[in-house]
């Protein structure tokens, strides 16, 4: 866990500098731990000591959340790697895995934000605002991680994200449109 606290501080407050450092020396183990901790945060925040739920199931819930968190992390990185390969910028999976994991760090602020749920409507609204700010922060850091990993500019990173998005919509219409036509002809 060497330099973990420096990286932690750096990603939150000096992301450009820290991502450059992490790019040179990616810490996959630290990334792995961050993804696991962030994934189990949501079920942990719903826990209750005297819950009627069996502790075994609570444990299972944590393992389940970690598993899906890790899977999403790997899928996201692989997916971007494939797109990057199309633009001949691939081969940086390890770096992106590390950077994208660190980009998730603002999610930890959901823990203090969740305390507002026990207050009145105003406090709940404040909690939701903090939650949204954490999400926005994390999204910007992820975009920044893509920029740093694949050496692309800010406008390009938007294209980078939007292409698969619109590609997906197009693919969906292509698929559905074809089958709808087929059904209309043969029904």
């Amino acid at each position: 866990m060497k330099n973990f606290f420096d990286n932690f501080y750096g990603v939150l407050f000096k992301p450009s500098e820290t991502f450059d450092k992490l790019k040179e020396n990616p810490h996959l183990i630290q990334g792995f731990i961050i993804v696991v901790l962030i994934s189990i945060l949501s079920p942990v925040l719903k826990f209750s000591i005297n819950s009627e739920q069996n502790p075994f199931f609570q444990g299972f819930e944590l393992i389940n959340a970690s598993f899906w968190g890790l899977l999403s992390w790997l899928f996201f990185a692989s997916f971007l790697e494939i797109i990057a390969s199309i633009f001949k910028r691939g081969g940086k999976t390890k770096i992106f895995l590390c950077l994208s994991a660190f980009a998730l760090l603002p999610w930890i602020f959901l823990a203090p934000a969740s305390l507002f749920k026990t207050g009145g409507l105003l406090f709940k609204a404040l909690g939701i605002m903090i939650g949204l700010a954490s999400w926005l922060w994390s999204t910007l850091l992820t975009a920044f991680a893509i920029m740093k990993t694949y050496d692309i500019s800010a406008p390009r990173v938007i294209t980078f994200i939007l292409i698969p998005f619109f590609g997906g919509i197009l693919g969906f219409y292509w698929f559905v449109g074809f089958f709808m036509t087929l059904i209309q002809i043969f029904q």
Binding site: L41, V44, L45, K46, F47, S48, I49, N50, S51, I108, F109, A111, P112, S114, L115, T118
Partner: peptide, 16 residues
């Protein structure tokens, strides 16, 4: 954050 989690769990438990 860690303390928030602990306080959150206690709050949820009291509410339950």
């Amino acid at each position: 954050c860690f303390l928030s989690i602990i306080v959150g769990i206690i709050n949820t438990s009291v509410k339950t």
